[in-house]
């Protein structure tokens, strides 16, 4: 009797194991079931209703990290994003997919939020996509414009962001800043190992036949770097690799999302990028080539803003 019972148990176990093998052998369906959609849909719902409670649903923590003084003399609030390992947020141009964070200043008399400043992103390449991301904690600068000679007041920003791994989540939070007091630190150095782009000083530009050529002395970029060169492959006495990543440019099409690598020889770099200029797709905005020139591979190395107006007529939408 016991033997028969043991045999029955063994048979049931074997059938159970076979059933498990059967289930696990269907990766597409099993994987789909393994990713619960409910939290994502909840996040999608939270995305449409502003409340700070959504923050704990994302692998991102946003905090107020004080005030800095920009080279322009303006004051910027610093938001620190701490990202869980494996997830990433997006630069102002996310690349093939994604979306940058958004900020909205809660009404403060006489003060407005200017264009946010993004530090140098990392480049995330997959076989299908290229994305410009922050895959470690980073700081986002929110410049404020207010009455002359008046320190930035206590204020709060409503933030929302997209953060992705195998899937994407939208999160949001309200961060509150105390009033700016005393001498503010300069914003020249990013505190989390990411450099801030400077206004062009190394590169020169030329545009001809819908091709932009960017050139310059690569070694100058090393000496212009405001942060130490941390790339072991580009010691300070050699020219670093140079590449360009484009910003979002309505009406200007590129062959790919980038990055576009430069040829570096004898400490000089040259970069040519074919453009397809389509004024009818400019959405009423001026045609401009915007981007970032990256020197070296590390996100802490020197980078430079590219802003080159393309003098063509833009059709109104």
């Amino acid at each position: 009797m016991i033997m028969r019972f043991r045999f029955l148990v063994l048979t049931v176990c074997m059938l159970g194991a076979a059933w498990q093998v059967f289930l696990n052998d269907k990766p597409a369906v099993a994987t789909m079931q393994a990713h619960p959609t409910t939290p994502m849909l909840k996040a999608a719902g939270a995305f449409n209703t502003a409340n700070a409670g959504a923050q704990d649903k994302t692998p991102v923590k946003a905090t107020a990290a004080g005030w800095v003084k920009l080279a322009s003399g303006q004051t910027a609030a610093v938001v620190r994003f701490e990202i869980e390992n494996g997830w990433h947020m997006y630069w102002q141009n996310p690349g093939d997919s994604g979306a940058p964070p958004l900020a909205q200043l809660q009404a403060v008399n006489g003060w407005t939020l200017l264009e946010p400043i993004f530090p140098r992103p990392s480049i995330l390449k997959t076989p299908d996509d290229t994305e410009f991301v922050y895959d470690t904690s980073w700081e986002w600068l929110l410049p404020m414009q207010g009455p002359d000679g008046v320190a930035a007041p206590a204020c709060s920003f409503d933030l929302s962001w997209m953060v992705c791994k195998e899937r994407c989540i939208v999160g949001q939070a309200r961060v509150q800043f105390a009033a700016a007091t005393g001498e503010l630190p300069a914003a020249g150095l990013a505190r989390l190992g990411r450099s801030l782009a400077t206004v062009g000083s190394v590169a020169t530009f030329n545009i001809k036949d819908q091709t932009i050529t960017i050139s310059g002395n690569a070694i100058n970029a090393t000496s212009a770097a405001s942060t130490p060169n941390t790339n072991p492959n580009s010691p300070s006495n050699t020219a670093p690799a140079v590449q360009c990543i484009p910003a979002v440019m309505p009406g200007v099409s590129l062959q790919s999302a980038g990055p576009f690598p430069a040829t570096v020889a004898n400490e000089k770099f040259t970069l040519t990028i074919p453009l397809e200029i389509q004024p009818h797709n400019a959405l009423g905005k001026p045609l401009v080539f915007n981007g970032l020139l990256l020197f070296g591979q590390s996100s802490g190395e020197y980078c430079e803003n590219i802003h080159l107006p393309l003098n063509m007529q833009v059709s109104q939408p």
Partner: peptide, 23 residues
Amino acid sequence: EKVSPDKTKSYGCGVKYAKSQNG
């Protein structure tokens, strides 16, 4: 009329194609 704009930058999540089919 000619469609205008005929090309814009789409926003949203990546499509996330099957990894085995990449390339």
